[in-house]
Simulated assay, not measured.
Amino acid sequence: MPEHVSVFQQIAVVILAVATVAWVVGLVRLVRVVAFAPPQAPRLPLGALPGQSQAPAQESVPLTAYEQDAFAGLVRQFGRR
């Protein structure tokens, strides 16, 4: 046993090693559960969101000629990339 290492430092190393092993074991178990679990739709707690009674109405806004030209330029700019 090295003379310059205190008992507290040795205990700290042991505690860190045990914590690391426990963390790795927990992580491996979590990955196994997630990897082999069938995919499910996400569930929200009951009452978190009200049910939707009907589909939202589709909205549209007429564009001016200037806005149409600007949008066409934007589409062309994205098409170059």
Score class of each variant (00 low, 15 high):
P62F: 05
E3R: 15
L30V: 10
I11F: 11
R76G: 02
A22L: 15
V5P: 05
V34E: 09
M1W: 01
G51A: 06
R29K: 14
G73S: 07
P42L: 08
P38C: 04
T64L: 03
Q77A: 03
L30W: 09
P39H: 13
L63Q: 15
A55R: 04
V24L: 08
T64Q: 02
V25N: 03
Q54D: 11
L49V: 15
A55L: 03
D69W: 05
F36P: 02
A72E: 08
A65G: 12
V61Q: 12
Q77G: 04
A72P: 00
E59G: 09
T20N: 01
R29V: 15
A57L: 11
A12Q: 08
P38Y: 02
D69H: 00
L74C: 02
G79W: 05
Q10A: 14
I15L: 01
T64V: 06
Q58D: 01
L44G: 10
V13N: 14
A65P: 08
T20V: 06
L63M: 15
S6T: 15
P45K: 10
A37S: 08
L30H: 10
I15Q: 01
L44R: 13
T20C: 02
T64M: 03
A35N: 11
G73K: 04
V31D: 00
P56G: 04
P50Y: 10
M1D: 08
Q52S: 02
G26L: 03
V31Y: 05
A65K: 11
V61A: 12
A22Y: 14
S6H: 07
Y66G: 01
P50G: 14
A48H: 07
L16M: 13
R29F: 08
I11Y: 13
Q58H: 02
V18C: 14
V75P: 00
A12V: 07
P39S: 12
P42E: 08
A41W: 12
A19E: 09
I11K: 13
G79P: 00
P39D: 12
V33E: 00
A12D: 08
R29N: 12
V24C: 07
S60C: 11
M1K: 10
M1L: 09
A12R: 09
V21H: 03
W23V: 14
R80L: 00
L27T: 13
Q9P: 01
